[in-house]
Nucleic acid binder design. Structure first.
Length: 440
RNA sequence: UCCGCAGUAGCUCAAUCGGUAGAGCGGGUGGCUGUUAACCACUAGGUCGGGGGUUCGAGUCCCUCCUGCGGAGCCA
């Protein structure tokens, strides 16, 4: 076909800066509607979708006719005049002057009408081209950029922990096991212990990377591979953690509302609920939360008892009475990891805190103050029957200039799901890994 | 590991009391100058998840296995 690529190549997101000009777009055919003498081509280029109008007489001889045979998702390069048009969803459309077919696509598996989740996940590599998935992945990018920026601006150092580890970090979750030159290695379930070493070296750090859990969880809130951001700060206490998490989430939500408004609209997110994410977030003592839940036991399938960890239904019920994220702090030490510091005013309680997102999205942040006393830490390791040798380096941190320190872990996909208002975590990551899914 | 739901055309689903397997989308062919999940006509497309059983007759009832989904536990 004819190539008339003299006009400058631009992206669809920048079209409004070029009204009245002839431009070139390089992308793919998202959809086409045709009649005898006019065709409407929806062209996408990764930054947006624009409708291109081709009248039979607008393009060189033969181009109009051959365009009719172009299948969805064929790659094309088009030239045309950018025009303002009130009928367009994005305010502009293109009057085509030329079209070059780069590669014709075979019949595209993803239909314009609905598909089931299994089919879509089997075609995830193509599904990510769809409008909503593009919006979600752009929000994911903005969340990552904003969170990193939040800590970078405040002098935190990005500190990358190893992914291969020799031992179970917390001794709780089931880990993925792999052969490491004849030794057994595990895939990291958290970078936190390494983050503590980093905080004592650099003052305040954050880790950001993938983590792995071999739990056989089959729910929309679980992946076997997910991303966590884990800040760790020397000389910070539990109150400081809550202030930090609160400030971080308020900034994050504000930035996404501002910079990714278009994407939230594509996802039909009710942003009025996000507008309410302002300081302060309610701080609920575990004891008060437990008392509240015990009174509501008639509505639970699994009754709640003081001292229990929250189940999903308890968590949801607890957050229902608030419009913004809440903190629940000072969980019983017994149900928390060995490294949690005890509350000196209540030795049964740990200086731990979870942040629960509203609308039933559940725990997005968990953290607290770490045990910094050598003897207490050794005692905890014993109580949890963890092998002391494997933690020698971690114990060292208490021998050489131990300080009170705190940190938290933020689950990236859960945070994205909440902000974007999506039903299932698996759409918040390009290629989700679940118990039954290793491909694509 | 436990509980629940589902599996019918490439995809999404329907099929009454057990009685000749259908529709929409997608594909193909043709029509249409403002469509926007475009529309209209025609057309091709089926081992009803596998195995066994009941019955004159099974997509439908029974048993069993497989696969997927949702939830619980655990967690972010």
């Amino acid at each position: 076909m004819e190539v008339i690529a003299v006009a400058p190549w631009i992206y669809i997101e920048d079209l409004k800066k070029h009204i009245g000009e002839e431009v070139t777009l390089k992308g793919w055919l998202y959809n086409m509607r045709s009649s005898k003498k006019i065709r409407f081509l929806e062209v996408r280029d990764g930054t947006g979708i624009v409708q291109c109008v081709m009248g039979a007489g607008d393009v060189p001889a033969g181009v109009f006719e051959s365009t009719g045979g172009i299948s969805r998702e064929s790659s094309i390069i088009v030239t045309g005049i950018v025009k303002e048009d009130a009928r367009s969803k994005i305010g502009v459309e293109i009057g085509l002057t030329g079209l070059e077919l780069v590669a014709k696509a075979q019949p595209y598996p993803i239909a314009k009408k609905s598909h089931g989740p299994a089919f879509l996940l089997d075609h995830r590599h193509l599904w990510i081209r769809s409008r909503k998935q593009v919006a979600l992945l752009r929000i994911r990018h903005e969340v990552i950029r904003t969170l990193r920026g939040y800590f970078d601006k405040r002098g935190y150092v990005c500190f990358d922990p190893p992914i291969f580890t020799a031992n179970a970090c917390e001794g709780t979750s089931t880990l993925f096991q792999t052969d490491y030159f004849g030794k057994t290695a595990y895939l990291s379930q958290s970078g936190q212990l390494y983050g503590e070493a980093g905080a004592l070296a650099l003052g305040r750090i954050y880790t950001f990377g993938p983590t792995f859990r071999a739990e056989k969880s089959k729910t929309r809130r679980h992946l076997t591979e997910f991303w966590m951001m884990e800040p760790e700060i020397a000389y910070l206490d539990i109150e400081g953690v809550m202030e930090l998490v609160e400030d971080m989430l308020v900034e994050l939500v504000a930035v996404i509302l501002d910079k990714r408004a278009e994407e939230l609209k594509v996802l039909e997110r009710d942003t009025s609920l996000l507008e309410k994410v302002r300081k302060p977030f309610p701080r609920v003592h575990y004891k008060d939360a437990a008392a509240k839940l015990t009174k509501m036991n008639d509505r639970f399938k699994v009754p709640f008892e003081d001292g229990d960890d929250f189940g999903a239904e308890h968590e949801t019920e607890l957050t229902k009475s608030y419009e913004k994220p809440i903190f629940v702090h000072r969980f019983p030490a017994e149900i928390k990891a060995f490294y949690m510091k005890r509350d000196k005013d209540d030795p049964q309680a740990s200086l731990s805190v979870d942040c629960l997102a509203p609308e039933g999205y559940g725990e997005i942040v968990g953290g607290g103050e770490r045990e910094d006393d050598l003897d207490a830490l050794l005692k905890r390791l014993g109580e949890h029957s963890l092998p002391k040798e494997a933690f020698d380096w971690y114990i060292d941190l208490r021998k050489y200039g131990s300080v009170p320190h705190s940190g938290f872990g933020l689950g990236l996909e859960r945070t994205i799901s909440w902000i974007a208002g999506i039903h299932h975590l698996r759409e918040a990551i390009p290629f989700p890994r679940t118990i039954e899914r290793l491909t694509p």
